[in-house]
Computed example of a mutant assay.
Amino acid sequence: MFKISFSLAAGLILLSGCAHHRAEPRTLKIAVNEIYCTETACACVHDVASRSYDPFLNQLAETGIQLEFTYFIEPYQLEEALLSGQYDGVLSKPWLALRLQESAGADFERVADLLDPGNNGWLSGIVIVPADSAIQSLEELTGKRVVIGEAESYEKHQAALRLFETRKIKPTGIETRASCGENIGELLDGHADAAVISDYALSADCAVDFANPEDFRTLEHTEKIPLTSLMINRNKVSGRQVQQLKKSLLTLSGNPADEALLSKGFIAPVPWNPPELKETP
């Protein structure tokens, strides 16, 4: 776990009607688990996961927005942090936080989405088979063994199950594993006929240590969902602070790409309302 804080003496400047209103100075504590961040990614993928937030947080502080990032390498560490109630927000895959709202007593609002190094803001699961597999289509997985992700990994669990249901595919058995690496391992060891992994797994995940993209074929993608979002707990942070944060994030992002962020940075959050939640911000 790593912690970096950027603060200014000046308070947060907000607009109230036609008059300026100075809020009490406050630092928002943000828990971070992010694919391309060098502080949270495995060292084996630091050639592609080299994102640093320091310069951007310095720029953000100059606008009066003070954020303190605490980095968590493993998703379960992030989960423990959110359940502790110590944080005002989170930067991660949206589902990691949204699924914990009730347990954490939180109301997470997606303030902005973060683009990947290709300036893509979407994520999906991919259904893969070995390159030499006789299986050529998704429909052929009926009666086959499939391994998917666990419930905290939306793109390779809920989205995968919905894909199979929609296409009326009934594997002999569906097993779950905790990581893309484990899913790929089950496939390579012959314990599964197909595996569902995150679409970045063969280029920006620890699986690169033992798996080559050319050794697999993709049968299908699951539905697209937001890749990474900055979410703020509205039970702890005022609406005016949230709006000022969003405005500053979008103002500082754009063209040209931010070298440290590896992309153009933040964009307005794309709509996403997973049916597994009664209500999603």
Rank of each mutant, 00 (worst) to 15 (best):
T70C: 12
G239Y: 08
S198I: 01
F69A: 07
Q66E: 11
Q86P: 00
T176F: 00
W122E: 11
R145M: 08
S229A: 14
A160P: 07
D189F: 07
R162M: 10
E175T: 04
L262F: 02
R234V: 07
A260V: 01
V237D: 12
A194G: 05
S238E: 15
G85D: 11
F2W: 02
A268R: 07
D107E: 14
A260D: 13
T38L: 11
G190H: 07
N255L: 05
E140Y: 00
E109M: 01
V127K: 03
P55F: 04
C37I: 01
L262Q: 13
P275W: 01
A194M: 04
L14H: 09
E34N: 10
L115P: 07
F72E: 13
E175V: 06
G89H: 10
S248V: 05
K93R: 12
V111L: 08
S103E: 15
L261A: 05
G125Q: 08
F210E: 13
A49T: 04
D113T: 02
E74M: 08
V48W: 05
S103Q: 15
A23S: 14
A257N: 15
E223A: 12
A151K: 11
G254K: 10
F72Q: 05
L230A: 06
A207M: 12
H157I: 01
G85T: 00
G265L: 10
I73R: 10
H221T: 05
A204V: 10
N33M: 02
A61K: 10
L14F: 01
D107C: 07
T38M: 07
G121T: 01
K168H: 11
P274L: 05
F72G: 00
E79F: 00
P94L: 06
L141D: 09
Q243D: 15
Q244N: 13
T228Y: 02
W272H: 11
T280C: 03
V237A: 02
S5R: 14
G149F: 08
S137K: 13
R234K: 14
S153Y: 12
P275Y: 06
P213A: 15
I135D: 13
R167M: 11
I267F: 04
S248R: 08
A207N: 14
N119V: 02
C18G: 05
A61T: 09
T40Q: 11
G17Y: 02
L202F: 04
H21N: 07
V196F: 12
P271W: 05
L277N: 06
P213L: 05
T40E: 06
S7F: 09
K144Y: 04
A201T: 11
S203C: 05
V196S: 09
S103K: 14
A9Y: 03
L219Q: 12
S84F: 03
